[in-house]
Design a protein around this nucleic acid. Sequence first.
DNA 1: CTAGAACTTGGAGTGCGCTCCAAGTCAAAC
DNA 2: GTTTGACTTGGAGCGCACTCCAAGTTCTAG
Lengths: 138, 138
Amino acid sequence: MNSEDALSQEEETLTIAQMAERTGLSADALRYYEKAGLIEPVGRSAGNQRRYAATDLDWVEFVLRLRATGMSIADMQRFARLRTAGQTTVADRLAFLREHRSGLDERIRALQQNADALDKKIDHYERLLSPQPGTERT
Amino acid sequence: MNSEDALSQEEETLTIAQMAERTGLSADALRYYEKAGLIEPVGRSAGNQRRYAATDLDWVEFVLRLRATGMSIADMQRFARLRTAGQTTVADRLAFLREHRSGLDERIRALQQNADALDKKIDHYERLLSPQPGTERT
DNA sequence: CTAGAACTTGGAGTGCGCTCCAAGTCAAAC
DNA sequence: GTTTGACTTGGAGCGCACTCCAAGTTCTAG
């Protein structure tokens, strides 16, 4: 019980390669996110190499959730800026997430609807292929 | 009862601008789709201007459903090529749609899961903001 | 018949979200 | 202390799905 999950307090930090492996992002993408302000400047080793803490991992995982739900980098930047600005922005952040959440519901509904339409098309093709309807033997 | 819905047999065809309005695609995008082979070469007026028939409209609407469910243009090209190739490809088309459909299910599930996680984050922010838990009256 | 709006083509340009590269520095193992 | 692999930066390049543009042609209304 050493290296999976919650980053044991002992190991403390991750290199960019370890972070990449854990998050599924490339090292390049992690640097890009940091440069873009999605991730705030991360800790560094004596020799200036990135060292990610557990809190960084949590944040990146949250960012990935926003991304997975279709949020653009520009919008994630906005949220990250609010977060960086401190607790005075909690209400703004809540509003932001609520709005994103409701857009998400809409998108899921639309997807379901399109999935249903696809099912009909699939049925159609299945009928085209099936031997003969109502004429089992001949 | 003249211009909405199913393209009355009388009017017969639509100009590219009318098609754009009906589908929500831009005229440029319609030409791009045609050039890309997503739409087969559409009918032309005497003077070489595009005239879309009802069947073209149906097909574009189907293509839009594929797009809305996340299919890339390259994949839609593949499907369009199968369609153009005739009834011998019906089984292939069915397999194609089934695969797309099952990927779609996965994506919807993932989206739901992320939505749930977002709800937790929202709850978290709500608790941060709410006056005082468990101390309704002071 | 004519003016002006809508259409045609080919090709260049755009925005997004990374990815790749070069040239140099740092870290870990021996 | 040296090698080898991982890391650093800045910036160029890429794939996707369009969008925009220019120069010319066609359509429609009056």
